[in-house]
Structures are given as structure tokens and as C-alpha cells.
Amino acid sequence: GKYLCGFTNHKIDIEKQVNQFRCKEDDLFCLDFTKKIITSKIKNQIVILRRYDKSKQDDIKDIISSLNKYISEIQNCTSINEILGFEGTSAKLYFSGLSKLVHDDFHFDKRSKRPPKDPFNALISYGYSLLYNEVVLALNQVGLNSHAGFIHQNKLGHAALASDLMEQWRGPIVDSLVMKLINNNLISISDFTLNESTGGYYLSRKANNAFIKYYEEKIRSKNSYFRHANFPMSFRYSILFNIYELVRCLEDGNLDNYKTLTLR
């Protein structure tokens, strides 16, 4: 379950990385970037809850109301830690909402990882791992340093910038895919086994191959969420497009023209 290695073509663009590290030292730039990314993440969580709340449950409405309140609060935050506090609280609320909208077989109590303590969390964690490496590869292709982030702290072996950027993509790509697979019975509870020694749940080889196939279909599917682009693009290309837009903002240290992905 741990990342070991990968074959990548590291396209280092020193000019882009000079701009990147300059902005990394700019507290106001990092704060504005965090507000944009986390606001987008929570907005996407709201859309997903609404999509799957077919019976219009009152408790889901209450969760959405709280999430909207956190979005407003974030705009007035003066530190990244303050924003991350709202982000953590919103994540707990969001997953508590998803637990009410998923098939009974996949009901879960809370978000768990390393190892995931239930089949739902196993799928979510697996999807996030695939997405994380997707963003790392895109950053390498563009020439940025994937380890120099603006939100997440530096940590040995951790691609912090990839973790930063993937926050806006978690809901649109992974969460929506997992909900679709479960609610359409494309993945069943019998596809998982419990490892007694770790307490973690793991996919069978057959289901693992199926999940990768469905993930690949999702990442290649077209969308028009970046309306200013004026053309549909796959989620995979959307990630690349978003990073190139960030590069342009890094040149002058101004995020006014940086658009995050927000579901509608």
C-alpha cells in the first residue's frame, strides 16, 4: 500500500521553479492560494452531496448549510492554519454526509486511512493515491517542483504541491467515481477482504483491475468546468491546463487570473 517508485521524465524548468520558490516565501500569495483551493474543494463537496441526496434529507441540508458557512468564514481568515481548521471540520461533515448517501453495505463511520478500516475508505484512499500521482506527473511535465507547495508543509518524500492542487480534484474525480461505482453496483462488498493483522480492507485483484479501468474512463472523460477555456477537455488535460495557468500567475506573483475547478 505504499508508493515505492516510478518512471518519470523530470522536465526541470529552472525559471519556473525560481518563480515558484519566490511565491512560496510570499505569505500573502500562499494565503490567497489556500483560500482559492480550499474554497473550491468545499464547493465541490456541496455539489456532490446535492447530487446524491435524492430524497432531500434534512440532515444533508444542515451539513450543506454548515459548509456554506465555512466558505464565508474562510474568506476572512488571516492564516493558513485557520483555513485548514475549517477545511478539517468541513471534511468530517462532508464524509458524514456521504455515509448517509451510500448503499448500506458500504456504510462507514468516518474517514480512515493507513489502513482504511472499511471498504468505502479503501476505495477513496486508492482513488486519491492514483490522483496524487496523476498530479505529480503533470507537475513534472510542466517543469515545476512537485515538492514545493504553498499549503502543505515540507516533508521528506512528500510532493506537497501535488497535495495542494489535488484538493480541488478529489470530489470531481475520485469521490464522484466511488459513489457511482457503489451505488450502481459496479463494485460490491464481496470484492473486499479484511486483513486481520492490520484491520485494513483491500480489493481483490479482479476488482482492482476493474477500479483502474473505471478510473481511467473517468480521468479521460470530457468536461467544460473551465468555462473560460471555451472548449471541453478531459480531466487529465484539465489538471495540466490548471497547472499551466498557475505557472502564469507565478511569474508576477498575482493569483487574480488563477481559476480553480468548481463543479456546477
Rank of each mutant, 00 (worst) to 15 (best):
Q75K: 15
R51M: 13
D62W: 00
S66N: 12
S65N: 13
K56S: 12
L49K: 03
S72Q: 14
L49V: 06
K56E: 09
V47H: 10
S66Q: 15
I42M: 11
L49Q: 04
I64N: 02
I64W: 03
I64Y: 05
I63R: 00
R50N: 13
I64V: 15
S55K: 15
L49P: 06
Q57R: 15
S40C: 06
S65Y: 13
Q75P: 04
V47A: 11
N68S: 12
K41P: 09
K61Q: 11
I63V: 14
I60K: 01
N68P: 05
N44W: 05
Q75W: 11
D59E: 09
Q45F: 07
S55Y: 12
R50M: 11
I42S: 09
I63W: 01
V47L: 08
R50V: 05
I64A: 01
S65V: 02
I74P: 00
K41G: 10
I42Q: 10
I60Y: 06
S72R: 10
K61D: 09
Y52E: 12
I64F: 06
D62H: 07
Q45S: 08
I63T: 08
L49T: 08
K61G: 12
S40D: 05
S40T: 07
I38L: 10
I60N: 00
R50W: 00
S40R: 09
I71W: 01
I74A: 06
T39M: 01
I42V: 13
Q75L: 14
K41S: 12
N44R: 05
Y52K: 08
Q57D: 14
K61E: 07
S65H: 11
T39N: 13
K41Q: 11
T39W: 01
V47N: 08
S65R: 09
T39P: 00
I38A: 06
R51I: 10
I60P: 03
I48R: 00
I48K: 02
I71H: 01
Y70S: 14
Q75Y: 15
K69V: 07
S72L: 13
K69S: 12
I63Q: 01
I48A: 10
I38E: 11
I71T: 04
K61F: 00
K41M: 07
E73I: 10
L67W: 06
K56D: 12
D53C: 01
I60F: 04
I46T: 07
L49Y: 07
Q45W: 09
I48C: 05
D53L: 00
S40L: 07
Q45E: 13
S65G: 14
R51H: 06
I64P: 02
L67V: 03
K54D: 08
T39D: 04
S40Q: 04
Y70Q: 09
D58N: 09
I46K: 04
Q57V: 03
T39Y: 02
I42F: 04
D53Q: 02
K69H: 11
S55I: 11
Q45C: 05
Q75S: 15
L67Y: 06
